[in-house]
């Protein structure tokens, strides 16, 4: 099955600006970085979370705590997928209790990944609040979930896929693409 690139909806510069804006919004909404914990969801949420932390550090002069969440064991589609996902480690270096957690992911779609992430996070303790930051919101929610911080809203059809390419992961220039299966 081949995929066809339909459109490039964000380039490196757009991504940089969006993350910068989100960093400002996070600081503003939480009145600084006290008790802030930025948690990237594997896999592309992790480099995005790192970049957000970098930007927040530039603005505030101090780095917020950061963690990595693997949601494989919380997925609701494990028994229906033919390909078994590899489990990776969850690495949250601080106690989540009482923290203001910002979950970071690349694309918000059905909301099922975020549901799994919320469950995974709750199993680690009781945060004060949880917010959600995504680079792209493409719609088609299947659960009552919305993002607090959005880089770009992109209307899509269900046949399309939204793909984020990041230098750290893919070795290419940063970009967000809409692709379609042939």
């Amino acid at each position: 099955m081949g995929v066809k690139e339909k459109a490039r909806i964000m380039d490196a510069e757009a991504i940089r600006r969006a993350l910068s804006r989100i960093a400002h919004e996070i600081i503003e909404r939480n009145r600084g970085i006290k008790d802030l914990l930025v948690v990237g969801i594997r896999r592309r949420g992790v480099p995005l979370a790192q970049r957000l932390c970098d930007r927040i550090a530039e603005i505030e002069g101090a780095r917020p705590a950061m963690g990595i969440l693997d949601i494989t064991l919380y997925r609701d589609d494990l028994t229906t997928r033919s390909e078994q996902p590899v489990v990776h480690r969850t690495e949250i270096p601080v106690d989540v209790k009482g923290k203001k957690v910002v979950l970071v992911d690349d694309v918000l779609y059905t909301g099922r990944t975020i549901r799994a992430a919320l469950d995974a996070l709750m199993d680690l303790g009781r945060p004060e609040l949880i917010q959600l930051a995504v680079l792209v919101d493409r719609g088609h929610r299947e659960l009552p979930i919305r993002a607090d911080f959005v880089g770009k809203n992109v209307p899509t059809s269900r046949k399309e896929m939204v793909e984020l390419r990041l230098n750290e992961v893919d070795g290419t220039e940063d970009m967000v693409l809409i692709v379609e299966k042939d």
């Binding site: 693997d70 064991l73 590899v86 489990v87 480690r89 469950d119 199993d123 303790g125």
Partner: peptide
């Protein structure tokens, strides 16, 4: 090796206060 790598990830869960995942 797959079992050993997966066990690595599982070990984190055993270290938690609430040792439970819904898998």
């Amino acid at each position: 090796n797959l079992v050993l790598d997966t066990a690595d990830s599982m070990k984190e869960i055993i270290g938690r206060e609430i040792k439970k995942v819904p898998t």
